[in-house]
């Protein structure tokens, strides 16, 4: 017989009980997934927030008045960072080194070309300030970044910076991030290389 997954029936309960009960069930579940049933949108949104913060994947279905929230635990439950991310490239400019800007752009291209040779697995690349232009359409290294991402690298660009340079619509690779996430990566990834 198929093993039934745990169901948390939090219908009719006042905030914050639904999210508390779901979290407890999620922590207790050895592996796999649970389903929470609620009947309010506030409970739904709060449970989705909690599960997302714990890196779970979430699927929401409505059946009449009841809302079913199916939550699947990740392999590394409770940690936002993937365990294998061990090298962070913190790219603060669109040129590499101080001096001629033309030379700096060439050096940056050479750098990312060389990096593709090593593969992307375990690497995080964060772009801030004019560095974000490297992840946007028209960038000389966009193809290399795409390859690195395909290879397993995580690529993040600062949203405030994209807005400043009016490049949000032109982001070509990776995700948009914020200063909280950037700070978390700088503190948690064992090795950081500043460019």
């Amino acid at each position: 017989m198929e093993k039934h997954e745990e169901i948390v029936d939090a219908r009719g309960l006042a905030c914050p009980q639904p999210v508390i009960l779901t979290r407890r069930a999620l922590e207790a579940a050895e592996k796999g997934s649970i389903t929470a049933v609620v009947d309010s949108e506030v409970a739904r949104d709060n449970i989705v927030k909690m599960a997302t913060a714990l890196s779970c994947s979430v699927d929401v279905n409505r059946q009449g008045k009841d809302i079913y929230i199916h939550i699947t635990k990740p392999e590394h439950f409770g940690t936002a960072l993937e365990a294998h991310e061990n090298l962070l490239f913190f790219v603060t400019s669109d040129t590499l080194g101080k001096g001629s800007e033309d030379l700096g752009r060439l050096l940056m291209k050479n750098f990312f070309y060389a990096l593709t040779e090593q593969g992307g697995l375990g690497k995080v690349i964060i772009f801030i300030n004019s560095g974000v232009t490297l992840a946007c359409s028209g960038s000389p290294v966009l193809d290399y970044l795409y390859e690195l991402q395909q290879d397993g690298a995580e690529i993040l660009s600062c949203g405030t910076c994209l807005d400043y340079y009016r490049l949000r619509d032109r982001l070509g690779v990776g995700q948009i991030t914020n200063m909280y996430t950037i700070l978390e990566y700088l503190q948690k990834v064992p090795r950081v290389i500043y460019l």
Binding site: R23, D45, N46
Partner: peptide
Amino acid sequence: FAAQGMVPAGAY
């Protein structure tokens, strides 16, 4: 706590 879903109905 906000990220963990401790958000009161009034905020919504």
